[in-house]
């Protein structure tokens, strides 16, 4: 039950893009085409889950015991940057076809604040999946990260679908490009607000 709650809440109710405003830059940047949006979502999904696993362990078994929590931000961003580089190198060697598909998105992910945001949230915030509120355990943390990333993908793919249609429409000149996209996201976010109340 709690697992289901984590998944639904992270994907729909607290959607990372539409209600938490994380990862907006790539969300607006690469959502022009459905195919690139799918690729980016897959890459983000992979990196968020992996980064949360590593930073969670780093925080619990290294920073906290040594009383070095003040290095949290710096340590996390370095881990994420290194991880992205590593994933890139490994993918290139192991699965060139997957690298072809995700490769160009990987360098962009280091500065995607969704990754750092989720990593920091997981180790500093109390969550309320089922009562009472508590800090997440490792399993929950990874599941939450994965579900959040899926939510990112859902928002991204929905939005790129809308945007492909928008591109064919005749919009006033001042609205062209990002402004009309933002207004569309606003309406999409309103639709997602309908989910709050479920979990």
């Amino acid at each position: 039950m709690e697992i289901l709650l984590i998944i639904v809440s992270a994907i729909f109710v607290n959607n990372i893009v539409l209600s938490q405003f994380l990862g907006i830059c790539p969300f607006l940047g690469v959502s022009n085409k459905l195919s690139t949006a799918t690729g980016m979502s897959a890459a983000v999904c992979f990196v968020i889950t992996l980064a949360t696993l590593v930073t969670y362990l780093l925080n619990k078994y290294c920073l906290v015991p040594l009383d070095l929590q003040f290095l949290q931000t710096i340590a996390f961003i370095l881990v994420i940057a290194a991880l992205v580089q590593m994933v890139e190198i490994v993918l290139k060697k192991v699965s060139p076809s997957l690298y072809q598909a995700l490769g160009i998105f990987l360098p962009l992910i280091t500065t995607n604040c969704a990754v750092l945001g989720v990593a920091i949230n997981v180790v500093t915030k109390e969550f309320t999946f089922g009562q009472p509120s508590h800090m997440l355990g490792l399993g929950e943390a990874v599941l939450y990260a994965f579900a959040t990333a899926v939510g990112y993908g859902v928002a991204m793919i929905l939005f790129s679908g809308l945007r492909e249609h928008l591109a064919m429409n005749d919009v006033p000149k001042a609205f062209k490009g990002v402004p009309i996209a933002l207004v569309t996201v606003g309406i999409l976010a309103m639709a997602f607000m309908g989910f709050s109340g479920i979990a």
Partner: peptide, 9 residues
Amino acid sequence: STTVGFGGP
């Protein structure tokens, strides 16, 4: 005293 509100603790 801590309980669970709408948005969190």
